[in-house]
């Protein structure tokens, strides 16, 4: 079981470690566009659409990675007073009641959404026409990654690996909103 958990856990870790690098790239693209616009009066035709699509790809693909690192804000005021056994039950119930219904709908509806866009060859409209379906496909993949990480997190709880006891998570540099 631990091997399975480790293997599945690695998927979002790898995705996260690669996708997280995009932020600095779209920062530079915007900077490049700003320089071209103000210094050379020659704005790019593509920067607006490309950075919007990159930003969307970036954050949506990182959802599972953030879950793996317990970065999604939660309120543990009450559950932290529970015993490990009770807290495990409540945590698993949270996944069953809220997480899986949402990610399942997100995955299946995104898939229909992306498939329709692909079948219609949907593009952005205007003098520059970019295809829209790749981002919709990415959203579907991202929903799948979320669902997968949710399963992994439940498996960890079942196997007795409690995130609230995981020092590597607690000691990480803090991140928040």
């Amino acid at each position: 079981m631990n091997t399975v958990i480790r293997a599945l856990d690695a998927i979002n870790e790898v995705v996260g470690r690669i996708v997280a690098c995009l932020s600095i790239i779209f920062a530079f693209i915007i900077l490049y566009d700003v320089i071209m616009r103000y210094a050379f009066n020659a704005p790019t035709r593509w920067a607006f659409d490309v950075t919007t699509q990159m930003y969307a790809f970036y954050f949506v693909m990182l959802g599972g990675y953030a879950l793996k690192h317990q970065s999604h804000v939660r309120v543990d005021l009450i559950t932290e007073t529970f015993s490990d056994g009770l807290r495990r039950m409540v945590e698993i119930a949270g996944y069953v009641i809220f997480y899986f219904p949402f990610t399942y709908v997100f995955l299946t509806r995104s898939w229909e959404f992306a498939a329709r866009s692909y079948a219609q060859g949907e593009t952005t409209y205007g003098a520059v026409q970019l295809p829209v379906y790749p981002l919709k496909m990415a959203m579907t993949v991202a929903a799948g990654l979320l669902l997968l990480q949710g399963i992994v997190e439940v498996l960890k709880l079942v196997a007795g690996q409690y995130y609230w006891k995981d020092t590597s998570l607690v000691e990480e540099p803090h991140h928040g909103s």
Binding site: H72, V73, R74, V75, F98, F102
Partner: peptide
């Protein structure tokens, strides 16, 4: 409220409540 008190991540409490609400 239930989801928040259960300590589940806010993002998915909101999303899950949306799905349950529709059902």
């Amino acid at each position: 409220l239930l989801g928040l008190f259960m300590g589940h991540p806010l993002a998915f409490v909101l999303g899950g409540t949306a799905v349950l609400g529709a059902l």
